[in-house]
Nucleic acid binder design. Structure first.
Lengths: 237, 237
DNA sequence: AACTTGTGTTAGAAACTCTAACAAGAGTAA
DNA sequence: TTACTCTTGTTAGAGTTTCTAACACAAGTT
């Protein structure tokens, strides 16, 4: 029989430890997360926490997993709340939710998108949450009018890779054009956001929010770009 | 009188220490850089190196500065080598040089664009190199046809901030439209590249190079995007 | 009541950063 | 040459880490 009381206390201890770790993360960054210091703040000695986490890396991996789930929940909620709105507004809603999440907790954002621990392999659980985040984004991109592509003869093309990627996540019905828009769009948002949360715009005197929104708007056009050739450069036509 | 011989030895010691630090960075990431370990590999005891660096943070800041200068040199060389080519090809040349630099030394790339040390303020020297990098990019973007804007009445607009930023760098003659293209373009390249060097595309089975090039091509269109309204979404016209 | 399991303790190894005190060499000046 | 200063190395040590091992004790099970 499973001891439910012990299991519950054990879970609460882990939650409490991670809560303090999140504080350390927010205040001092990843390097400021210390198993020893967490234990002290919980009123126990250092080694006690090793009954709950195999090591510091294990704790960090838990934080990464939790953060991905939190991010996925956040953007999913925003997408759900925008139900019924016009497609462009739903994209904007996703964009704002994503940015708010990141700007509100810069170090946690970089915990997800910064350099991973050496040898890190994201577990299925974590990958699932990352997928949920991306799916939420894809769901607000309009699908109509996009050619439903399947596995192409040439697997080295981006389209083929995108379809294979979607297939592996059980989303084989999403057209490659939408997948491409989603993936490129995500990299664009991350491009601005990651520079913002690391403070790179600080010495430049530029409001990252404006730049971010400009990029969000660019997503609303990224499809039509693809249609035209890409040899033109600059100059109002 | 200045003792030139001592000064030279001192400089060589610092260079050697940073060389080993770069190896540690490449192999184990930032966390793997250890003053003690560097000293041992140089055949001296740990504290000896503190005659050359005020502390570990000081060493890291030197690495950041060197990396920025190296990156600036690299993209400047690529831009210079593309002299005379068509503007789109020069943009591509910059893009490839930037990506090669980052992909070739992922941890060093993240040393520049990852979370900075707490309280870090980039010194002038470092800012200069960052500016050189951006200027190299701006120099391959075509300027003709762009309206030469100066300080606007409304300073909260992105254009006004861009002009102020360029002014502070002594590049007040660059039109705001080009500044915007440059800044947005840089964030796009960084968006893909930073996800690549942190291994985020690994589990996705997608070739980041293809995605990166798609974004490079998007830069060649970013201006014309601005001209049209930004309310359209998806769907081949 | 006896046994197993879980969870805390202390002790300690092996790292790390960084400071202090000291020793010795290199360069300068009387 | 002698004396002084400056630079650069050493060792010792404080105060951190992470993490393992050995032990103590309580809680749950049989």
């Amino acid at each position: 029989m499973v001891n439910v009381r012990r299991e519950r206390f054990r879970e609460e201890t882990k939650v409490e430890a991670k809560r303090i770790a999140l504080e350390q993360l927010a205040e001092q960054g990843i390097a400021g997360i210390s198993v020893n210091a967490i234990a002290k703040r919980m009123g126990v000695t250092g080694p006690a926490l090793y009954r709950y986490f195999k090591g510091r890396d294990d704790l960090l991996n838990d934080l990464v997993r939790d953060a991905w789930h939190d991010l996925a929940d956040t953007v999913e909620a925003a997408v759900a709340a925008s139900e019924g709105a016009e497609p462009p507004d739903r994209v904007r809603a996703f964009g704002e939710a994503f940015r708010s999440w990141g700007v509100g907790q810069p170090h946690r954002y970089m915990l997800l998108f910064g350099t991973p621990l050496p040898g890190y392999q994201a577990p299925d659980d974590t990958l699932m949450a990352a997928h949920r985040t991306m799916s939420a984004f894809l769901s607000v991109l309009p699908h109509e009018g996009a050619a439903p592509g399947r596995a192409t003869a040439e697997p080295s093309t981006l389209d083929a890779q995108l379809v294979a990627w979607a297939d592996s996540r059980g989303e084989g019905d999403v057209p490659p054009a939408v997948l491409l828009t989603g993936l490129r769009g995500f990299t664009r948002l991350h491009g601005v956001l990651s520079l913002e949360v690391t403070g790179q715009f600080g010495p430049m005197g530029i409001d990252p929010a404006l730049l971010y929104r400009a990029e969000v708007e660019s997503l609303l056009l990224v499809d039509s770009e693809e249609v035209r050739g890409s040899t033109r450069l600059s100059g109002p036509g």
